Simulated scan of single mutants.
Amino acid sequence: MGKKEEKKNKKQKHQHPNDQTTKPTSDFAFKLSSEVKGLKFGGQFMVKSFTIRRARPLELLKLLAFPQTNKTSNKIPFPSTTAFLPTNFTILAHHAWHTLTLGLGTKKAKVVLFVFESETMKLAVDRIWPPEIPLGEVNKKLVRGLNGCEMARFKFRKGCITFYVYAVRRVGNIGFSCADDLRTILQSVVDLKDFLDHTAMLAMPNQRSINYSCPQAAIAHYL
Results as ranks from 00 to 15, higher is better:
Ser177Tyr: 00
Ala93Lys: 11
Lys141Pro: 02
Trp97Phe: 02
Glu117Thr: 09
Leu135Asp: 02
Phe156Met: 10
Phe176Thr: 02
Glu137Gly: 03
Trp129Tyr: 08
Ser80Glu: 15
Lys158Thr: 15
Thr101Pro: 05
Met151Gly: 09
Leu146Cys: 05
Tyr166Thr: 06
Val115Leu: 04
Ile133Gly: 13
Thr90His: 05
Thr120Asn: 14
Glu132Met: 13
Ala109Arg: 04
Ile133Gln: 04
Asn147Glu: 14
Phe89Thr: 04
Ala83Thr: 15
Thr99Cys: 11
Ala179Pro: 01
Tyr166Cys: 06
Ala93Ser: 15
Tyr164His: 14
Leu100Phe: 14
Glu137Lys: 10
Ile161Ser: 00
Pro131Val: 12
Pro79Phe: 11
Leu92Lys: 09
Thr90Phe: 00
Gly136Arg: 10
Arg170Pro: 01
Ile185Gln: 04
Phe156Gln: 06
Ser80Phe: 01
Met121Asn: 10
Ser80Cys: 15
Arg157Asn: 11
Val138Glu: 05
Thr106Phe: 03
Arg153His: 12
Phe78Met: 01
Val143Ala: 11
Val143Phe: 14
Asp181Gln: 14
Pro86His: 06
Ile91Tyr: 01
Cys160Ile: 07
Thr184Asn: 15
Gly175Asn: 15
Thr81Trp: 00
Asp126Cys: 05
Gly172Ile: 02
Phe116Gln: 02
Asp180Pro: 01
Val138Met: 09
Ala179Asn: 03
Met121Gln: 08
Pro130Phe: 04
Leu135Thr: 06
Arg144Lys: 12
Ile133Arg: 08
Leu100Cys: 08
Glu119Leu: 07
Ser80Thr: 09
Cys178Pro: 01
Ile185Pro: 00
Cys149Asn: 10
Ala96Tyr: 04
Arg127Met: 06
Thr90Met: 03
Pro77Asn: 05
Leu85Val: 04
Thr106Ala: 09
Pro131Glu: 02
Arg144Asn: 14
Asp126Lys: 11
Leu104Tyr: 06
Cys178Glu: 12
Lys108Ala: 10
Gly136Ser: 08
Thr184Gln: 14
Phe154Asn: 00
Glu132Asn: 15
His98Trp: 15
Pro131Lys: 09
Ile133Thr: 10
Leu135Cys: 08
Ile91Trp: 00
Leu104Gly: 05
Thr106Trp: 13
Arg170Gly: 07
Leu102Gly: 06
Ala93Tyr: 09
Ile128Lys: 13
Leu123Ile: 05
Val115Thr: 09
Cys178Trp: 03
Lys141Val: 14
Leu113Lys: 01
Lys107Leu: 07
Val171Cys: 06
Val168Gly: 13
Leu186Glu: 03
Gly172Ala: 13
Gly136Glu: 12
Ile133Tyr: 14
Gly172Glu: 08
Lys140Trp: 07
Pro131Met: 10
Gly103Gln: 14
Pro77Asp: 00
His98Met: 02
Glu150Phe: 01
Ser188Tyr: 00
Val143Thr: 12
Gly105Pro: 10
Ala96Trp: 04
Leu102Lys: 10
Phe89Leu: 12
Leu102Gln: 08
Lys141Cys: 11
Leu102Met: 14
Leu113Phe: 15
Gly159Ile: 11
Phe114Cys: 15
Asn147Asp: 06
Glu117Cys: 11
Ala109Tyr: 01
Cys178Leu: 07
Asn88Glu: 03
